[in-house]
Amino acid sequence: MIFSKKEKKIVAYTVEKCPSCKKESKRKFKQGDCLFVESSKCPSCNVPMNIAKIFGEPTA
Rank of each mutant, 00 (worst) to 15 (best):
M1L: 14
M1S: 14
I2E: 15
I2W: 11
F3P: 03
S4Q: 08
S4D: 08
S4L: 14
K5H: 06
K5M: 11
K5L: 11
K6R: 09
E7L: 13
E7H: 13
K8E: 08
K8L: 10
V11Q: 12
V11T: 10
V11H: 07
A12P: 05
Y13M: 06
T14K: 00
T14F: 00
V15W: 02
V15Q: 01
E16Y: 13
E16G: 06
K17M: 12
C18H: 03
C18Q: 02
P19F: 01
P19L: 05
P19A: 10
S20T: 08
E24N: 02
E24V: 07
E24L: 05
S25I: 14
S25L: 11
S25Q: 10
K26Y: 00
K28L: 10
K28N: 13
K28M: 10
K28D: 03
F29M: 06
F29H: 06
K30R: 13
Q31G: 03
G32S: 04
D33P: 01
D33R: 13
C34E: 15
C34F: 12
C34D: 12
L35K: 13
F36Q: 14
F36N: 15
F36C: 08
F36E: 14
V37E: 14
V37P: 00
S39G: 15
S39N: 12
S40D: 12
S40N: 08
S40G: 06
C42R: 01
P43N: 06
C45H: 07
C45T: 03
V47E: 08
M49E: 02
N50V: 14
I51G: 02
I51W: 06
I54F: 11
I54G: 07
F55A: 02
F55R: 00
F55L: 02
F55Q: 02
F55N: 00
E57N: 03
E57T: 05
P58G: 02
P58W: 01
